[in-house]
Design a protein around this nucleic acid. Structure first.
Lengths: 143, 143
DNA sequence: CTCACTGCAAAGGTTTTGCAGTGGG
DNA sequence: CCCACTGCAAAACCTTTGCAGTGAG
C-alpha cells in the first residue's frame, strides 16, 4: 500500500539520495498514480501541489530513482516511457486496446516459474528476474 | 528458419499486401537480422542492396507489416522501437547490460502457462497471449 | 490505368543536455 | 559552505505527416 510522507523520505535516504521537495513529490506521485504513469502524468499531478517543477527535472529525478533502484521502467511497445514504483515481484497485464497496464501479483505463479527455471537452466544466461507480459483485453474497456 | 525470396513474396500476398521491392527487402531484413532490429538497423541493412529507401518508408512499411500481422513490436524499456518477424509463440531474454534481446522457445513452458491460466482465470480480463520477459545477463556479454 | 506506395522534407513529440542559480546536508 | 540538485531553454532524437511523383496489379 501507499507509504506515508515520512516513509517516502526514508526511502530516499536509504537509497543515499538527498531529500528534495521535487524528489519527494515525484516519488509520492508514483505511489499515488499507481497505474504506471508517464512523465506527463507525473508532472501534471505534482504541479497541483508543486507548481513550477520543470519537466526536465521530472526526467532527471526519475532517472536517478531508477538508478538507485527505487523505481523501474515498464517495458512497452509504445514510444512514451512509463514508470513503476512497485518493487515487489509482480507481472503486468497489458490492454490491447488502450494504454492501460495493471499489476498482477501471484506468489503461486512465481514459485512455479522459479522451480521451472531452477531445473531448466538457460545456457549462457544468468536469470535475474522474470516478468510476465499478459496481453489481452479488459472486458470493461470500451474502446 | 529464414524464408526464401519466393516465400517472402508469398507472405506479403497472403496478407493482402502489394509486393514492392521495399517491402520485400524490409521483410527479408527482419528475417536476416534476427535479433529484433531497430528501424535504423533495418534501413542500414537494406540500403546495401536497395540504396535510396527513405527512412520514412521503413517506418511506414513496418507499420503496415505490424497491422497485417506479419511483424510484431517488441516491448522494451528503451525509447527506440524494435521489431520481430517471428510469429510462433516465444519469449524474450533481455540483457541487463546491453541492448541484446534473444528469442526463447519452450513448448513445455507454454503448456505449463496455458494450463496454469486455464484453472486460474483473471477476473475481468481475456488473455490473448502471454510472453515472458526474462531479464538478466548473458555470461559472454563483456560490457 | 488507377490507386496504393514511395521519396523527401518538414513538423511533432519525447527525452537529453548545458549552464547558471539555489538549497539540502 | 559546498556540491548536488533544479529551472529553463535549446538541442537531439525518433517518429509521424503531407504532398507530389511512381509503379504494382
Amino acid at each position: 500500500m501507499k507509504p506515508g510522507s515520512e516513509q517516502i523520505s526514508q526511502k530516499l535516504k536509504n537509497a543515499g539520495m538527498k531529500v528534495t521537495p521535487q524528489r519527494h513529490a515525484i516519488l509520492e506521485a508514483l505511489y499515488t498514480l499507481n497505474n504506471h504513469p508517464t512523465v506527463e502524468n507525473i508532472a501534471e499531478y505534482i504541479r497541483k501541489t508543486h507548481p513550477g517543477v520543470a519537466t526536465g527535472t521530472v526526467y532527471h529525478v526519475l532517472d536517478t530513482l531508477v538508478q538507485n533502484g527505487l523505481v523501474q521502467r515498464v517495458k512497452t511497445d509504445k514510444d512514451v516511457m512509463r514508470y513503476d514504483a512497485t518493487l515487489e515481484n509482480h507481472h503486468h497485464i497489458y490492454s490491447a486496446r488502450t494504454e492501460r497496464i495493471e499489476d498482477y501479483f501471484d506468489n503461486e505463479l512465481d514459485d512455479l516459474l522459479l522451480s521451472y527455471f531452477q531445473k531448466k537452466k538457460l545456457p549462457n544466461f544468468d536469470i535475474d528476474k522474470i516478468t510476465l507480459q499478459i496481453n489481452g483485453a479488459f472486458v470493461d474497456d470500451s474502446k
